[in-house]
Design a protein around this nucleic acid. Structure first.
Lengths: 347, 347
DNA sequence: CTGAAAGCGCTTACAG
DNA sequence: CTGAAAGCGCTTACAG
């Protein structure tokens, strides 16, 4: 049924070797022979068997992409970027979704090894990579994406989370806000830590105090954002603005705000990290920090291809710039002396 | 570096064959030999090379999953369901995202063939499969998911789209609505057609007229929903309720409603097909038709496994039931005779 | 310009 | 209970 090179050779009246040469695009084949072989290939609907090639050459043209949660709208554009570049280079992508489960992550890495994947792009669910050498030894190229696990030593593609958070807070302060609350995702990951650092730094640079009661840490989920937001909204002295550290937490925040029947931005202004499909349809539409997701994928895949060809080149770190998307969820507030006094007193 | 069965055999002082037997879990190995081999395996960190096994056995334990748009929140839970079942059966999933591009779809099918995937679960971007026999011949099991392309003859897993739409319209009518508008997605796909049929049927069953001006067809995107909604909202006689045929179109609908500053549900009620993360945080929260996505994935994967073991069994069609999730986007309206007259006159 | 032979890492009869 | 040999479908020296 499925034909092989042997069948082609027989039909064309040549040897395996010559068929192989034609397939390779080698010049050293007589035009006549080439013609016969081409015809035989067409007639038999012949397609090379990847598996045999892989076994023989130890090259799979396979890139493993291990993502933490494909249901998070942050990831699909990244995957798309990776795929587009890989296709250009004639590599196939095998996509693995760990759902933030380190067990599943290990499993997938094993599977990718067993299938001879040449390279891996991974957004790890692990805060720390203990055995990078052992775990990733078989890949000729490894790129860590989005998160920088501790102990990692390799190519890295991230967005400038610190700057992203900084932009958000700076914008709020520019709009006259001083009582600013921050909902931070898991500090186990560099993303969470850097965004918190960015928020702190913006406050410090502008000489505004980030009050403890306005700082919440939670896990980066809808539920986490919801709970943190509820605590903030129950405070005797409400913040005038809330910055939320990722799209899921923003969803939770919006839910809590709705339940509390608090008007945005009249009572509380909101800036959310991550641009999403639904940023425009909330009431009011959401001012967000947009990460260059598709580009992150493109850059990661290019890095993979580069290292495949330059195994010895030094590791690089690509840090892409997020941008502020201004919509309607932040109010310009007039700065009364009383407000400032209020803040000081509340402490 | 990477060790092979040969290395294991040498270290254990046995033959390849015996190592293979131990790996297979065969009983016919002397406990002592088995012990030595086990030890050698451990010492060498031996892992079987899938590629070699595949080449020899022609079995890959690989299931290809071809989805139309992984950025659509409808799909990730399906993929999750598929993965969970496949893992149980020791199959790996290779996920392909076509972005509704039939060219990419064909490409992926080729890749899956070349990699000896045994089975494929596909939500095709093609309204019609012209050459099913040729295209899918190499897979021992094929399941079409979500959409039923024309000319397809095989296992099928879909949700009961007709019933879903019926539930939505029936609910609206129960709430006193008569001037009901419907935004339909692409009629090239069974999903779009069946949902429209369901809406029509509900109206007919309740003896309510579905007016042409209230029926919009568009492509199943945010932009499509937005444009269709704008037309509806510009009508001299507004509908009292709008049913939108998928989550993207609902997003567009909500955007148009927002721009037109129309109050939901006071002026217009809304029911959207597809439950999403953001259904709860719109203002007001959205009444939706929830599809059993995770279950669809589970059922599809189980079907795959069944057919792998029962190649001759007749094709089946699994139709899963969607449910109505009631929230705050539909208003109970009192039925004035004038309203009905208005409708008749407007025609 | 062309081909015979070896081998990638396994499994599958077959034989003992 | 154990092993030698053939072969899956290719590519890679090597030879001519």
């Amino acid at each position: 049924m499925e034909s092989t090179m042997k069948d082609v050779a027989k039909l064309a009246g040549t040897s395996l070797m010559t068929v192989s040469r034609v397939l390779d695009g080698s010049k050293n084949v007589a035009p006549e022979t080439r013609g016969k072989i081409r015809q035989a290939i067409r007639k038999l609907h012949y397609r090379p068997h990847r598996t045999a090639i892989e076994l023989r050459t130890k090259r799979s043209n396979l890139v493993g992409v291990v993502m933490a949660d494909i249901a998070n709208p942050f990831y699909p554009p990244i995957v798309r970027g990776i795929e587009d570049v890989c296709r250009e280079h004639d590599y196939n992508v095998i996509l693995c979704n760990t759902d933030e489960d380190t067990q599943r992550e290990n499993n997938f890495i094993q599977v990718l090894k067993e299938r001879y994947a040449e390279a891996i792009i991974i957004c790890s669910a692990k805060p720390k990579i203990d055995n990078q050498a052992e775990l990733f030894a078989s890949f000729r190229s490894t790129v860590f994406l989005n998160r920088r696990p501790r102990n990692v030593n390799g190519d890295l593609v991230i967005s400038d989370n610190l700057r992203g958070a900084y932009l958000a807070i700076e914008y709020l302060i520019g709009k006259g806000h001083q009582k600013i609350a921050v909902i931070n995702g898991s500090q186990r990951f560099s993303t969470g830590r850097e965004r918190f650092q960015g928020a702190k730094k913006a406050m410090a640079d502008k000489g505004i105090r980030l009050e403890d009661k306005y700082v919440k840490f939670t896990n980066s989920s809808i539920e986490g954002g919801y709970c943190a937001a509820k605590e903030l909204l129950n405070l005797p002295s409400l913040p005038t603005a809330i910055f939320s550290g990722n799209n899921f937490m923003t969803l939770g925040l919006m839910k809590a705000i709705k339940e509390a029947r608090i008007k945005v931005p009249d009572i509380v202004s909101v800036v959310g990290f991550d641009e999403t499909n639904w940023s425009e349809i909330t009431n009011p539409s959401l001012t967000t920090i947009k990460q260059p997701t598709y580009e992150m994928g493109v850059v990661a895949a290019k890095l993979i291809m580069f290292r495949l060809n330059n195994p010895q080149s030094p590791y690089v770190e690509k840090k892409l710039k997020p941008t502020l998307i201004i919509r309607d969820s932040v109010k310009q507030i007039v700065q009364h002396q009383t407000t400032i006094t209020g803040v000081l007193m509340a402490n």
